[in-house]
């Protein structure tokens, strides 16, 4: 068995013992299911809230099915990202702070394998959780609201998944260069918020930004096509992810392990 796979397997086992394999898919599934449910029952909820003047007819149109999927992305972008950052903030930082890393790296283990196995294991967990949540949302939307074309839904799944991949990679990057998991989480969430907000306002200037991926995913789910500069954003995002990973390795290689 290759050394990389041994490291990868250890990460998966750790996530299992930490219950990450339970709670991460659960969070995404709950978010995915709740979006179509609340959309469907929103008129009823407002009606029972009883704040409307007597005699007024409530007519809140139920949005088309693709919009419900797009709203699910919105949920994933908030609590989903928060959960991903919290789950991966300590992935390298924790091992450096506790000293477990130096006992492993005193063995003939390459630092690239050490980092990339952690990154890959976290991504496996991320994509699985996201898949479960997305499938749940799609199915409930189908039951309660209406159909979404399969090719569109699948295309959007992969495009939005790339944004989550970026978020995880960024967190792993910060976790590699810093020792304090709290600061890692703070910086990761902070920069993801800024990237996302800027990409939604400076649409022209930041057309290449990974922060635009959610816009493209929402567009794909309803029209089957990305918004303007879709392929630019797609390729730049993949590029940034690769660069971040290599940079994390490079900086980690320079690090001296003193506890």
């Amino acid at each position: 068995m290759g050394q990389w796979f041994i490291l990868f397997k250890k990460e998966c086992m750790e996530s299992w013992r930490n219950y990450k394999w339970l709670w991460m898919p659960s969070v995404f599934l709950i978010l995915g299911l709740m979006q179509p449910i609340t959309t469907y029952y929103l008129p009823d909820i407002l009606a029972t809230a009883g704040e409307l003047p007597e005699g007024s007819e409530i007519s809140i149109p139920i949005p088309p099915a693709p919009d419900v999927i797009a709203a699910t992305f919105g949920q994933f972008s908030q609590i989903g990202i928060l959960v991903l950052v919290l789950a991966s903030m300590g992935i390298v930082a924790g091992e450096r702070a506790s000293g477990t890393a130096s006992m492993i790296l005193a063995r003939p283990v390459s630092r690239f394998s050490f980092i990339s196995a952690k990154w890959a294991a976290m991504l496996l967990l991320t994509w699985l959780s996201y898949l479960v949540g997305y499938a749940g949302s799609w199915y409930y939307t189908f039951l309660l609201i209406g159909e979404v074309e399969a090719t569109n839904a699948i295309g959007a799944f992969f495009v939005y998944g790339l944004w989550l991949t970026f978020a995880v990679t960024l967190t792993v990057f910060f976790s590699t260069i810093l020792k304090n998991a709290g600061i890692v989480a703070f910086l990761s969430i902070g920069s993801l918020l800024v990237i996302s907000a800027l990409s939604h306002t400076l649409t022209k200037l930041l057309a290449w930004s990974p922060g635009r991926l959610s816009v493209h995913a929402s567009s794909i789910v309803s029209t089957g096509e990305g918004a303007d500069h879709f392929f630019l954003a797609l390729s730049v995002s993949i590029g940034i992810i690769i660069v971040l990973l290599i940079l994390a390795y490079y900086l980690f290689k320079q690090k001296e392990l003193v506890e």
Partner: peptide
């Protein structure tokens, strides 16, 4: 309000398991 409990049950069960 006419809730479809069959649809909401999975969410409640998940939260309960957690």
């Amino acid at each position: 309000m006419d809730l479809n409990w069959a649809l909401i049950a999975p969410v409640i069960i998940l939260e309960f398991i957690l």
